[in-house]
Amino acid sequence: MEFKDKLIFARAKLDLSQSELARELNVSLPTISRWENGKVNPTKKATFVFLQFCKKNNIEIEEE
């Protein structure tokens, strides 16, 4: 599963808007949009923060 798919899955599971998820991950709304569109991949740090966020919210995401 690509990162963009993981992001969309987690956001849908928690019923969050892109803006709400951006606040949760401490990134900008355009960053979330670029990640979801697959235009940009997150840094390792951002990926780690996202995976920790998923664990905290009991969302199972396969780590690569």
Results as ranks from 00 to 15, higher is better:
residue 2 E to D: 15
residue 2 E to Y: 00
residue 3 F to Y: 10
residue 5 D to G: 07
residue 5 D to F: 01
residue 5 D to A: 10
residue 6 K to H: 04
residue 6 K to M: 11
residue 6 K to R: 12
residue 7 L to E: 04
residue 7 L to Y: 05
residue 9 F to S: 10
residue 10 A to P: 03
residue 10 A to D: 09
residue 10 A to M: 06
residue 12 A to Q: 15
residue 14 L to K: 10
residue 14 L to A: 01
residue 14 L to D: 08
residue 16 L to I: 00
residue 16 L to T: 07
residue 17 S to E: 08
residue 18 Q to M: 15
residue 21 L to I: 00
residue 23 R to D: 15
residue 23 R to L: 11
residue 24 E to F: 12
residue 25 L to Q: 01
residue 25 L to P: 00
residue 25 L to H: 02
residue 25 L to E: 03
residue 25 L to K: 01
residue 26 N to M: 13
residue 27 V to Q: 07
residue 27 V to S: 01
residue 27 V to F: 03
residue 27 V to C: 07
residue 28 S to W: 07
residue 28 S to A: 09
residue 29 L to S: 10
residue 29 L to Q: 15
residue 30 P to G: 08
residue 31 T to N: 00
residue 33 S to K: 13
residue 33 S to A: 14
residue 34 R to G: 06
residue 35 W to V: 03
residue 37 N to V: 04
residue 37 N to H: 12
residue 38 G to E: 05
residue 38 G to S: 04
residue 42 P to Y: 02
residue 43 T to D: 06
residue 43 T to R: 08
residue 43 T to E: 08
residue 47 T to S: 12
residue 49 V to Q: 10
residue 53 F to L: 04
residue 53 F to C: 02
residue 53 F to S: 08
residue 54 C to W: 00
residue 54 C to M: 01
residue 55 K to D: 12
residue 56 K to R: 14
residue 57 N to K: 08
residue 57 N to C: 08
residue 58 N to P: 02
residue 59 I to D: 06
residue 59 I to N: 02
residue 60 E to N: 12
residue 60 E to R: 12
residue 61 I to V: 14
residue 64 E to S: 15
residue 64 E to P: 14
residue 64 E to G: 13
